[in-house]
């Protein structure tokens, strides 16, 4: 590969000129821009962004997208930049962006997914496997690459949620299987309920399962009167709404289990057990066995309880 950094020349760039929608060399970073904005306000741009002018006069960013975004936010009229020759091939430009970024920061799974998607567009699979996956820390397995490729095609807000840990990779993978409208309905629901990533995953899995199994669109499942009444209930706090919503969906997916759980709770309640005794049912009520747990404050007390139990047995 030729070094395209040698023939660069300096220019004064209007931050509004580059097309930020262009993804040719895009390696996304989902961190907040605030710190970078403050840094540039205090000391300016230390490393000049790198741009390429493509036929038609359009400027695309090779390196420094966030610096340009920050400059726009601050309202700078011009920044020092470098320009690479327009004949630099896409693959070489992407390599510049890749190696510059990977040397400086950790790629979270959202960034990995976008990068893998782009690498697979530009290079042969075997090249991706030998030259890039080892530095990305990704196993050279086709199905894993396909999953990342699909995730890498998700909309920015979904990827940002994945990057920030608000949704898990498993949730993102399910979202890739939905059409845009359904996906946005899920995202909006998760935002509304404000749950953690694990609970979001459970909810999305259950709703997706119900949708597939009953051949019903997700939007229909989450807009039935029962769910709407939970979401619109002004007397419930956000965590209460989330909890009721999850339970409702769970009761549709596992009706027998939820019924068993209720019966079990009712049975325990009727027995009015002392606080130090708890009874657990078998996993998923697979059989009628129970585990009884008795907490004792001391070994003496434990000995007495055991002696009494053994005598009675």
């Amino acid at each position: 590969m030729m070094s395209w950094l040698d023939p660069t020349r300096s220019i004064l760039l209007d931050p509004n000129d580059p097309d930020l929608g262009d993804r040719t060399y895009h390696i996304p970073c989902y961190a907040s821009l605030d710190t970078l904005v403050r840094s540039i306000e205090r000391i300016g741009i230390i490393n000049r962004p790198l741009v390429q002018e493509i036929p038609g006069g359009k400027m695309v960013l090779v390196l420094g997208r966030r610096r340009i975004e920050a400059a726009r936010k601050i309202g700078l009229k011009a920044v020092q930049a470098r320009i690479v020759p327009s004949e630099m091939p896409e693959a070489d430009g992407f390599l510049l962006a890749f190696w510059d970024n990977i040397g400086q920061r950790f790629f979270n799974v959202a960034t990995q997914a976008v990068v893998v998607r782009r690498l697979l567009e530009i290079f042969q699979r075997s090249t991706v496997a030998t030259e890039f996956l080892p530095v990305l820390g990704i196993a050279a397995k086709g199905p894993r690459l396909e999953s990342l490729r699909a995730i890498g095609g998700l909309e920015d807000p979904v990827l940002a949620s994945l990057a920030s840990g608000r949704i898990l990779e498993k949730t993102a993978e399910i979202l890739t299987r939905l059409d845009r409208e359904e996906r946005m309905a899920c995202m909006s629901l998760m935002n509304q309920l404000g749950m953690n990533a694990n609970k979001n995953a459970e909810l999305v899995v259950n709703i997706f399962d119900l949708s597939v199994f009953h051949h019903k669109p997700i939007s229909k499942i989450i807009s039935v009167s029962d769910t709407v009444s939970v979401l619109e209930n002004e007397h419930l706090s956000a965590p209460e709404k989330a909890s009721r919503f999850r339970e409702l969906v769970r009761s549709w997916k596992f009706p027998e289990l939820v019924k068993d759980e209720k019966n079990f709770r009712d049975w325990q309640r009727r027995m009015s057990l002392p606080k130090q005794i708890t009874i657990r049912h078998a996993q998923s009520f697979e059989n009628h066995s129970c585990t009884i747990e008795i907490r004792a404050d001391s070994r003496d007390e434990a000995n007495k309880i055991l002696a009494r139990l053994l005598n009675e047995a």
């Binding site: 051949h215 596992f254 009706p255 289990l257 996993q283 998923s284």
Partner: peptide, 12 residues
């Protein structure tokens, strides 16, 4: 595959 989306629970 729709059958994998039935109400499967974790067994013992």
């Amino acid at each position: 595959l729709s059958y994998f989306h039935d109400g499967f629970l974790r067994g013992l």
